[in-house]
């Protein structure tokens, strides 16, 4: 969006076609790796180190009493770190490949969420409802 505004600002009142061409040219150049910068990589790296170190520290020191709290907190850190990697290392944005990268990513995320949440949900209920109880197990032994 900012890139587009810039183009509009520099080439005042361009014609539609020229405008599109200019935008397009720019896009061509910064595809490949050219929008990776030292600063971007270092930001991503420092954030990743912090977001990795904290969950390890939480688990290894047993910071929280309850396992569930720890699990939710470290899953949260993992989610944030995945976003950090996507932005700073994989250079995800809504513009690359004219939005197709982002579209494919969103589609995949939806499928991943359905796969994970669906499996865990269904199998948890299956376990809860169909597994023999402790009492049955003792009878079986």
């Amino acid at each position: 969006m900012s890139q587009r505004n810039e183009t509009i600002e520099t080439g005042n009142l361009m014609h539609g076609a020229e405008h599109k061409h200019d935008d397009h040219h720019h896009h061509d150049e910064d595809d490949g790796a050219s929008h990776s910068t030292f600063k971007g990589y270092m930001t991503g790296f420092v954030l990743s180190v912090i977001l990795t170190a904290i969950p390890f520290w939480l688990v290894m020191t047993g910071f929280f009493e309850s396992s569930n709290t720890t699990a939710f907190v470290i899953l949260g850190f993992a989610a944030v770190q995945i976003v950090v990697h996507m932005i700073y290392f994989l250079h995800m944005n809504a513009r690359s490949e004219e939005g197709w990268n982002m579209l494919a990513l969103i589609f995949t995320v939806v499928l991943v969420v359905i796969t994970l949440a669906g499996s865990l949900w269904v199998m948890f209920h299956l376990n809860a409802n169909m597994m023999p109880t402790m009492h049955d197990m003792q009878n079986m032994l």
């Binding site: 990795t52 969950p55 390890f56 688990v59 699990a71 470290i74 899953l75 850190f77 993992a78 770190q81 995945i82 990697h85 996507m86 290392f89 994989l90």
Partner: peptide, 14 residues
């Protein structure tokens, strides 16, 4: 590396 974030969190830490 992104997948590994999931592995160390979900498998090892949890």
């Amino acid at each position: 590396d992104v997948v590994w974030i999931g592995v160390f969190t979900f498998v090892y830490l949890m």
